[in-house]
Amino acid sequence: MRNIFKYIPMVTLGQILGTAVFFPLLCFLIAIFYYSNKYNDDAEQYYEDYMNNSYDIEVAMPEEKSKCYLKNQDEDVKTVETFRTRMVNNYFANPSGWYIPFFSVEYKKYLSIMYFVDTSQMYWPYGRKVILTVNRDDMNNPEYGTKENPVPVLKDIGVDESIRDNDQDYDKAYMDSFYRENVIRYLKYKMPKSEFKRRFKNGE
C-alpha cells in the first residue's frame, strides 16, 4: 500500500490532495474567519424595533423610463447585489437584494425600494400609486435621502391594484410575513455593521 504513490505522477497526486484536502479546508477556514463575522447575524433580535419605528407614505411612482430612477441617470447604479455568506459543499450560498432607487417628488428625497425575498410573483411598481413603508429615523436623518444613500423602503403595496399576483398586497398575513423577512434580511446583510451597532446595540 505504501508503494502505490510511486505509480501516481506527482502533479496528479498534488491535484488529488488539493481537491480532496486543501480546498475544502480553505473553504472551511474562510467560512469560520471571514463570513462568520461579516454580517449582522443577530438582526432577528432587533427587527421589531425597526418595524415599530416605521410608518406609511403614499407616492406616485414615476414611469419606467423616467429620469427620476437612478438607473436611468447612471448605468453604474447598483440595482442587484449578492451577499456571500458561507461555503456550502464548496459553493457559496448567496442571498441577493434587488433595488429600485428613485427620486420622490412628493418628499424631495431619494428612496430605494429594496427586496431581499422572492420577487417572482411581483410586478415592478412603475407608474403606479403605492403605499411605501419607511423608517422614521431614516427619513429624519439628513445622511439618508441622497443619491448615494437613498432611504430604504422595505414594504410596498399598490393603492389602486396589487403589485403582486393573487392580490397578495391585501393579504395581511402574507404582507406581515413579507415585511418581517425583508426587514430582517436588510438589517442582516445591507445595514453597515457600525450603524447597526449604533442604532440597536449601544444602549444595551
Results as ranks from 00 to 15, higher is better:
M1T: 04
I4E: 11
Y7N: 06
I8C: 08
P9W: 06
P9I: 05
P9F: 03
M10A: 08
V11M: 07
T12F: 12
I16H: 04
I16S: 01
T19Y: 03
T19P: 06
F22T: 06
L25H: 01
L25E: 02
L26S: 00
A31W: 11
I32K: 08
F33Q: 10
Y39H: 09
Q45P: 13
D49A: 10
D49Q: 14
N53C: 09
S54C: 08
Y55E: 08
V59H: 03
P62Q: 02
K65I: 03
S66Y: 02
T79S: 03
T79M: 05
T79V: 06
E81C: 00
F83D: 12
M87A: 00
M87P: 01
M87G: 00
V88S: 01
N90W: 02
A93C: 00
A93K: 05
W98T: 10
W98C: 05
P101A: 07
F102P: 14
V105Q: 15
K109N: 09
L111F: 14
I113A: 09
I113E: 02
I113V: 15
Y115A: 14
T119K: 12
Q121H: 12
Y126E: 03
V134P: 02
V134Y: 03
R136E: 15
R136K: 13
R136Y: 11
D137V: 09
M139L: 06
M139W: 04
N141Q: 05
Y144T: 02
T146P: 07
T146Q: 07
P150S: 04
P150D: 07
P152V: 13
P152N: 10
L154V: 15
K155Q: 15
V159Q: 14
D160Q: 12
D160E: 15
I163P: 10
R164C: 04
R164T: 04
R164Q: 12
R164L: 12
D167W: 05
Q168W: 13
Y170V: 14
D171C: 02
Y174K: 02
M175W: 10
D176P: 07
E181V: 08
N182H: 15
N182Q: 15
V183H: 13
V183Y: 11
R185C: 13
M191E: 14
P192F: 08
E195I: 05
E195W: 06
F196L: 12
K201A: 05
